[in-house]
């Protein structure tokens, strides 16, 4: 455990070096700013409800995707040179190491956003931690929140990794175009229908960053798994293209 923590500390330090410590400070500050509107607009004094509203706040999500993607692209640019590349056992190992660092960046920003939301909520809205009164699918909100934020972290990570692979395949312009398309997709209509069967599940990724009314929790889990496998499939396809394209690494 001690070693793992030491390793994590080392990884965070490396990320700081790759993207610049000053910039990490700015990222944390911007994360803080992005949480403020949610604290003011939240309808309930309950902390769990407030956290749930943060998770479906598209302005906040767009911010997270944009700021993380930008920093990931900066890190990729800084390390894609002969000094770094040939020190790895292979290009594949280089990618693996980068993805590990990307997941840590996302995790840190994600945790900071939750921390700021809780902190600001306590300061401005009070101390209402009761999770028994609010129920989703007849279960306490905290159980649903655990599922929702796990999915949130997984899907957010997959989106960023896809953007990273696109940067490696086609360069900065392609990555930024796709990033803009992802951001644009969050402005599309919110899914308001109730999902009663597998044939009605939403296919657009942004529908998994909002509250969609499913007839039961199992159906929502199934829909999330399907979407997860679609994203994993795209990721492996991009990885295959990247590893097999007969072009230069640099």
């Amino acid at each position: 455990m001690k070693n793992k923590l030491k390793n994590l500390k080392g990884q965070i330090n490396d990320i700081g070096n790759f993207v610049g410590f000053k910039r990490i400070g700015i990222v944390i500050f911007l994360t803080f700013l992005s949480v403020i509107p949610n604290v003011y607009s939240t309808s309930s004094p309950n902390i769990w409800n407030s956290l749930f509203e943060l998770g479906i706040n598209h302005v906040h999500i767009i911010f997270l995707i944009a700021i993380i993607s930008y920093n990931v692209i900066c890190m990729a640019e800084a390390t894609k040179n002969s000094n770094f590349l040939i020190r790895y056992a292979g290009y594949k190992n280089y990618l693996k190491d980068q993805i590990k660092k990307i997941l840590i960046i996302i995790f840190l920003v994600f945790i900071f956003s939750l921390f700021f939301e809780i902190l600001l909520h306590i300061i401005f809205r009070g101390w209402d931690f009761n999770f028994l009164d609010i129920k989703i699918y007849e279960m306490p909100i905290i159980v649903y929140l655990l599922f929702y934020y796990l999915r949130f972290y997984l899907f957010l990570s997959l989106i960023i990794i896809l953007i990273y692979f696109l940067y490696q395949i086609g360069g900065k312009i392609l990555a930024y175009i796709v990033l803009l398309l992802v951001i644009f997709s969050f402005s599309l209509d919110i899914y308001t229908k109730t999902v009663n069967s597998l044939f009605e599940i939403p296919l657009l990724l942004t529908n998994y960053f909002q509250f969609v009314n499913y007839s039961n929790f199992f159906l929502e889990i199934t829909a999330s798994f399907l979407q997860f496998y679609i994203l994993i499939g795209i990721m492996f396809l991009l990885k295959y293209i990247l590893m097999n394209k007969k072009e230069n690494i640099l």
């Binding site: 800084a78 040179n81 002969s82 000094n83 590349l85 040939i86 020190r87 790895y88 056992a89 292979g90 290009y91 594949k92 590893m243 097999n244 690494i249």
Partner: peptide, 18 residues
């Protein structure tokens, strides 16, 4: 295959180092 494995024990200074 450099996509999978770089030649071992090689270091390089090529053009301007970054």
């Amino acid at each position: 295959n450099p996509k999978k494995e770089y030649p071992p024990n090689m270091r390089a200074l090529i053009e301007n180092p970054t």
